[in-house]
Write a protein that binds this DNA or RNA. Structure first.
Lengths: 134, 134
DNA sequence: GAATCTAAAGCCATAATAGCCTCCTGATGG
DNA sequence: CCATCAGGAGGCTATTATGGCTTTAGATTC
């Protein structure tokens, strides 16, 4: 899977959190966004582990942005939420690692590598701040 | 789901087909790419319906490119294979169509619309030719 | 026209994702 | 200290994606 709904929900949460000062709890977030609370909770936990969000337990706890919007790239978000960077292909990271017996003659690897590079660049340079700016 | 493996397989097929003159059948393609034949066949059929590929039945039949590589955008490929354009969000296409009772005060729609525009632009302007060019 | 080749299209099984529910842990306020 | 609030973690179910298999239909060759 390349990009799943988890990334969508993560971004929706980040946009909403960027508009508030005090921490927002997962219940409020799920209601505001009409998203399954338990699924969203796992996503928020991933974002917290990746140090994109801060989490606070107890009364008036919740989640808040831990970085500046311009420091949060779509690539970061997708990577931590999906568990790995959005790989356009299951293909090996380098031609040498290709498990195929045709590795030495793999004729499409250069194209895949090129596409992956374009997508990575796009995602890495698209930050939360880009969306918030008018 | 935003982008699935079907799009990956579609692109792998297109890259391979762009390197051959005569039609290539689904069995050969699936073996060259190490992809499930039956799943790939469905993807190729989608590409044929979208007039991205030509299909030929009978002896020496198969599939071949119907358009120039520069006329085939990633957006076209993803749209026809996934059944719809890769929507970053389930959100309504316009603020008026928003099913939420908070439609008039939806504070994140502008951001979603902006991100969708950026992704659409990226995918629409990335063509098969861009990958094939050195 | 018969045999053969290959796309088209359907149904079914499995794997991954999306979502639901419950219990546990840490923090807060009285 | 105790009740309560909210995150952390795991299991369980429903939905969707992925892939296997079979049948049908069009095209080619003889």
């Amino acid at each position: 899977m390349l990009i799943t709904r988890a990334s969508e929900y993560a971004l929706l949460s980040l946009i909403l959190l960027s508009k508030t000062d005090s921490p927002m709890d997962s219940d409020t977030l799920s209601k505001e966004l009409s998203i399954s609370k338990s699924f969203l909770a796992k996503i928020l936990q991933s974002l917290a582990k990746a140090e994109i969000l801060s989490s606070y337990k107890g009364v008036n706890g919740g989640f808040s942005l831990r970085k500046e919007p311009k420091e949060i790239s779509m690539l970061d978000v997708a990577s931590c939420v999906e568990g790995k960077a959005p790989a356009v292909f299951e293909c090996a990271p380098s031609l040498e690692d290709c498990p195929s017996e045709k590795a030495s003659t793999c004729s499409i690897w250069p194209f895949l590598h090129k596409l992956q590079g374009k997508i990575d660049f796009f995602l890495a340079n698209l930050t939360l701040a880009d969306l918030l700016d008018d």
